[in-house]
Amino acid sequence: MYKRILVAVDGSDIAQKAVKHAAEIALKFESAVTLLHVVSPLPAAIRNSVFEQKLIDEIMKDGLQTLDKAKSDIIEFNVQADTEMKVGDPSTEICMKAKDEQYDLIVIGSRGLGALSGFIMGSVSRRVVRHAPCPVLVVR
């Protein structure tokens, strides 16, 4: 049923729970799993500043660590996973990847690291549920 599963990860505890749920589903359905971390673009005020490249390097380093942690969590379940990092609006990038690569299921945490901004602007998970081309499992 679910042959291709896309899991959104951001380093939060809820995202870790989502990874574990995805691993359990992948075991049952012998699914391929992709762990996706999306980095939001830098604010305009920081772009073209002397700090821009250093900040980008730190953000990318943190993103790779987030993906490595998620991958180690999923390997505990004997599930292999690919990893990918993108820069852009998280909900847009998640939905585009799911559509372009024909994923059968998206697994995402209900609240990520940006709980305050999620409250103000609407959460990523809510936008993914609204616009996803496939079923979405929101983990709480």
Rank of each mutant, 00 (worst) to 15 (best):
P90L: 08
A8D: 07
I106R: 03
Q102I: 08
I14N: 12
Q102E: 11
A26Q: 01
K69W: 08
R111V: 09
Y103F: 15
D57S: 09
V50T: 12
M85T: 10
R126M: 08
V38I: 12
D104S: 12
S12E: 08
D62N: 14
T66G: 07
D104Q: 10
M60H: 15
I120M: 09
K61A: 15
R130Q: 13
D68I: 00
S12I: 01
N48I: 11
P135A: 03
A132H: 04
K61T: 11
I74H: 02
V87A: 05
G118P: 04
I56Q: 05
K71Y: 00
N78Y: 09
V87G: 05
G112D: 06
I25P: 01
S125M: 06
I106H: 05
V39Q: 12
I75T: 15
I14D: 11
Q102G: 13
E84I: 10
A8N: 11
D73R: 07
E58V: 13
V19L: 00
S125I: 06
A98R: 05
S72M: 00
E84F: 03
A32E: 15
L64H: 13
D73K: 02
I120P: 00
L64N: 14
E93G: 05
V107I: 12
A98S: 12
D62K: 13
V129A: 07
P90C: 10
V38E: 00
A98F: 02
R4Q: 10
Q65D: 15
I75G: 11
A115M: 10
G88V: 04
M1W: 09
S110A: 13
D13F: 10
M1T: 13
A18W: 04
L116I: 13
V139W: 02
G63E: 00
G122R: 07
E24P: 00
G122F: 06
Y103D: 08
F29I: 03
T34K: 15
R126C: 04
D100E: 15
D100W: 10
L36T: 06
D68M: 05
I14Y: 13
E84H: 09
G109T: 12
I108P: 07
F77C: 07
K71E: 12
A26E: 02
R140T: 03
V50P: 00
V124Q: 01
Y2P: 01
C134L: 00
A32L: 09
E52T: 09
Q65L: 15
D10P: 06
A132W: 03
S110Y: 03
M85S: 13
